[in-house]
């Protein structure tokens, strides 16, 4: 079947370009074309594999093998072993979807509910403000982008030990003290859940500049003629132009920012682990999916079966979001 394909492709092409050609001529053309194609294919596949092969082998070993292996493990009772023999069917999945892991997916949703819209609004606001000024534009852009160079660990450290330190010398508590308010235990007390303020502000600081750059790139792709046309049509500057020109034109960027920040929130680990985790372990509040999986699979229990099932559930969720993104943005198109 495979060898037939170039032939049929050629015939289809020949039919279009030369509808009047005689059957005999076409046959001889086909034969010559087919043999030269075969030669070309074997000669060409060598350089292709030299270029693509090394990467592809690594990808198969370090992406496909782990996923396949963990799909296998997820159907077994695999505690402390990676070659289990007790098949449990879908039990691991059922456990994960009814236990604390489901709770952690809910935790993630709360986090996403705050972080995604706030990131979107702040990044867009900064991008519009920075893009409209003439003086010191590069300076402001750099300042807002600078936290991208910072790690989540460093940010967690500043937030935990300085800004939102639960003791009196913490900066937030110092400010509260000016207003005669008692110090707040920002991270150690789940009720009221002030820890969300700490987590959300830390991530906002780290990632807003990155999405701002995406929005600035989007803003600069909007053709000047649209603004000129709006001006001629009597649109008032400011909100009206933003609502009817700028924002609709930014649609592809907006979708990218929403979905990228949502996918990033799914993978939240670093700042949660460092802000809420202690030497004694992790509290049972504010626990996102990856943190739960970390303690489940790599902690005392070494439960690779449940850990793999959880990882696959999470991967499936993210794959769905990415597919949605691909549909909306045309990711993976050939050009």
């Amino acid at each position: 079947m495979r060898k037939q394909r170039p032939l049929r492709a050629f015939r289809a092409g020949a039919d279009r370009s030369k509808p009047m050609s005689s059957p005999g001529l076409e046959r001889s053309l086909n034969r010559r074309d087919l043999s030269s194609l075969r030669l070309q294919t074997s000669a060409r596949s060598a350089p292709f594999w030299l270029f693509v092969g090394p990467f592809l082998i690594g990808l198969l070993i370090f992406s496909y093998v782990p996923i396949g292996w963990s799909a296998y493990l997820s159907f077994f009772d695999a505690q402390g072993t990676v070659t289990p023999d007790t098949f449990v069917g879908l039990q691991n999945y059922a456990d994960m979807l009814t236990g604390p892991f489901a709770q952690s997916l809910l935790t993630f949703s709360v986090f996403a509910l705050f972080i995604v819209p706030l990131t979107f609004a702040l990044a867009l606001g900064l991008a519009v403000a920075v893009n409209r000024i003439r003086f010191a534009r590069a300076f402001f852009r750099s300042v807002f982008f600078l936290p991208t160079a910072c790690s989540y660990v460093v940010a967690a450290m500043v937030w935990k030990l300085s800004l939102f330190s639960g003791v009196r010398f913490g900066l937030a508590n110092t400010v509260l003290d000016w207003f005669g308010h008692d110090p707040v235990a920002w991270l150690s007390n789940p009720d009221p859940p002030w820890y969300w303020l700490v987590l959300v502000t830390a991530r906002l600081w780290l990632q807003v500049g990155f999405y701002m750059i995406l929005f600035i790139a989007g803003l600069q792709r909007i053709p000047d003629s649209l603004y000129e046309a709006a001006y001629v049509d009597g649109a008032r500057p400011g909100w009206q132009v933003f609502r009817h020109i700028t924002f609709p034109q930014l649609r592809p960027t907006s979708i990218a920012v929403l979905l990228l920040s949502l996918i990033a929130a799914y993978q939240a680990f670093d700042e949660f682990y460092n802000l809420l985790g202690t030497a004694r372990g992790y509290p049972d509040f504010g626990r996102p999916p990856l943190v739960y999986l970390y303690y489940l699979a790599l902690g005392q229990t070494q439960d690779y079966g449940h850990g793999s099932a959880g990882a696959l559930i999470l991967a499936l969720l993210i794959a769905l979001v990415t597919l949605l993104q691909g549909r909306l943005l045309g990711l993976g198109r050939r050009d």
Binding site: S63, W69, I263, Q267, Y304, S308, A311, I318, T322, L323
Partner: peptide, 10 residues
């Protein structure tokens, strides 16, 4: 579609 962070267990 599957970020590396998510598959850290496998």
């Amino acid at each position: 579609m599957v970020p590396a962070a998510v598959t850290f267990v496998p």
